[in-house]
Deep mutational scan, measured.
Amino acid sequence: DNLVIALHSYEPSHDGDLGFEKGEQLRILEQSGEWWKAQSLTTGQEGFIPFNFVAKA
Rank of each mutant, 00 (worst) to 15 (best):
D1K: 08
D1Y: 11
D1T: 09
N2M: 14
N2K: 09
N2T: 11
L3K: 04
L3C: 07
V4N: 00
I5M: 06
A6D: 00
A6Q: 01
A6M: 06
L7E: 05
L7H: 06
L7T: 08
L7Q: 08
L7F: 05
H8S: 09
S9C: 09
Y10G: 00
Y10R: 07
Y10D: 00
Y10L: 05
E11Y: 14
P12S: 14
P12A: 12
P12Y: 04
P12Q: 06
P12K: 07
H14M: 10
H14I: 09
H14A: 12
H14R: 15
D15T: 11
G16L: 08
G16T: 09
G16K: 08
D17R: 09
L18D: 01
L18R: 01
L18I: 08
L18V: 03
G19S: 08
G19A: 11
G19W: 06
F20W: 02
F20N: 00
F20H: 00
E21P: 02
E21S: 13
E21H: 13
E21Y: 11
K22Q: 10
K22C: 10
K22N: 03
G23V: 01
G23K: 01
E24C: 05
E24A: 06
Q25Y: 15
Q25P: 10
L26A: 00
L26N: 00
R27K: 10
R27A: 06
R27M: 10
I28C: 04
I28L: 09
I28F: 00
I28V: 10
L29P: 00
L29R: 03
E30D: 12
E30I: 09
E30R: 07
Q31P: 05
Q31M: 13
S32E: 12
S32C: 15
S32R: 12
G33F: 03
G33W: 03
G33V: 03
G33L: 03
E34D: 13
E34P: 12
E34H: 14
W35I: 08
W35Y: 11
W35E: 05
W36Q: 01
W36E: 01
K37P: 02
A38Y: 03
A38I: 07
A38S: 01
A38D: 01
Q39R: 10
Q39L: 10
Q39G: 03
Q39I: 13
S40V: 03
S40Y: 02
L41K: 03
L41T: 07
T42P: 03
T42A: 14
T42R: 14
T42M: 11
T43S: 10
T43N: 07
T43D: 05
T43Q: 02
G44S: 05
G44P: 01
G44F: 08
G44I: 02
Q45T: 06
Q45D: 09
Q45L: 13
Q45P: 00
Q45W: 07
Q45N: 10
Q45K: 14
E46V: 15
E46P: 02
G47A: 02
G47S: 01
G47D: 00
F48I: 07
F48Q: 06
I49Q: 00
I49W: 03
P50L: 06
P50S: 05
F51R: 15
F51L: 09
N52R: 09
N52Q: 12
N52W: 15
F53H: 09
F53I: 07
V54K: 00
V54D: 03
A55I: 13
A55Q: 11
K56D: 11
K56P: 14
K56R: 10
K56L: 13
A57S: 11
A57D: 10
A57W: 13
A57Y: 13
